[in-house]
């Protein structure tokens, strides 16, 4: 039982990270209608920024705040300078730009800070003895911290979308950009804010995951997380925030359980099996679990 609980805890923790990055993907998708391939690498870059600030003997919380800020600015700039000019053309062009960012940002991080593995300090207590015991399973401080961050972010986003003007405008743009523009919404600014927001969320996911990740902070850290996150976002149905969170958690737990209980899969086929299950689900529901089906007039 305690083994099961431990797997559940680790699954939920990884799942929360996937959910965070998936939220970033969904925010972009709702605005621009594309999957931001560079989201993971953007998060990686901002995490390097945070790491670099901690090596300058700045407190970790300041470093995280700065990384969020950098993430916001970079996201907004990317939208304004690189995405918007080509977004009118088609999906493929945006996708290629994102692929370019993917390679470019990853290499830029390597160029600035070297490719060797860095140790990123955790903002939460994560020593050997910092755990609460639940039914024999150990719940460590940083796992709790990650859950807390996800819940907190969900709360903030609900507030943003429900009760603020910017949130209302973002929903309007996601729903129908043309109508929103005609009604006086400054669509272009809203799009930039959306990308900035997702850059900041990605940065949060990055700084939270690296102390937990087996590779710590290296150039490959974010890639597998990005794969899982994009699967989570698609699973939930690209345009649903709730779907992204549910998707992330489901994938995290699925991975942990499959790895733990199905010996054929073991530690080596977890991505494959998680993704396969999602494909099967997509087969049944082609726009994800919570996605809206688009009706097109022909």
């Amino acid at each position: 039982m305690d083994l099961f609980l431990e797997r559940l805890i680790s699954g939920l923790t990884n799942g929360s990270i996937y959910a965070l990055l998936a939220l970033a993907l969904v925010v972009v998708f709702r605005g621009t209608g594309t999957l931001n391939f560079a989201q993971g690498e953007l998060a990686l870059f901002t995490t390097f920024v945070a790491w670099w600030l901690t090596t300058q003997s700045l407190p970790i919380w300041f470093a995280i705040a700065a990384a969020l800020g950098v993430g916001f600015i970079m996201g907004a700039l990317i939208e304004r300078l690189l995405i918007r000019p080509v977004a009118k053309r088609n999906d493929m062009a945006v996708l290629i730009v994102a692929l370019g960012l993917f390679t470019g940002l990853n290499s830029l991080a390597g160029l600035l800070w070297g490719s060797e593995t860095k140790i990123m300090p955790s903002p939460f207590p994560n020593g050997e003895s910092d755990f609460i015991s639940i039914g024999g399973a150990r719940l460590y401080g940083d796992a709790l911290g990650v859950w807390g961050a996800l819940i907190g972010l969900m709360g903030l986003m609900t507030l943003l979308f429900r009760f603020t003007k910017v949130g209302l405008h973002m929903r309007a743009v996601a729903d129908n950009a043309t109508s929103a523009t005609l009604a006086g919404v400054r669509t272009s600014r809203i799009l930039a804010i959306g990308w900035g927001l997702s850059g900041a969320i990605g940065a949060l996911a990055g700084v939270l995951v690296t102390p937990l990740a087996p590779q710590q902070l290296s150039l490959t850290t974010m890639f597998s997380i990005f794969i899982a996150a994009s699967a989570a976002a698609l699973f939930g149905g690209l345009d649903s925030l709730v779907g992204a969170v549910v998707g992330g958690l489901v994938i995290g737990v699925l991975e942990a359980m499959l790895t733990g209980y199905v010996s054929v899969i073991g530690g080596s086929l977890q991505q494959t099996s998680a993704l396969l299950i999602i494909v099967v689900i997509l087969f049944a529901k082609p726009t994800g679990l919570f996605g809206t089906t688009k009706l097109v007039r022909v």
Binding site: V86, A93, I96, G100, L101, T103, G104, L105, S107, L111
Partner: peptide
């Protein structure tokens, strides 16, 4: 090393802009 990756990314983006 890394610089070539940066250039690769920049070229890729540039192509989309100037020669779609």
């Amino acid at each position: 090393g890394p610089l070539s990756g940066v250039v690769f990314g920049v070229v890729l983006i540039a192509i989309v802009f100037v020669m779609p």
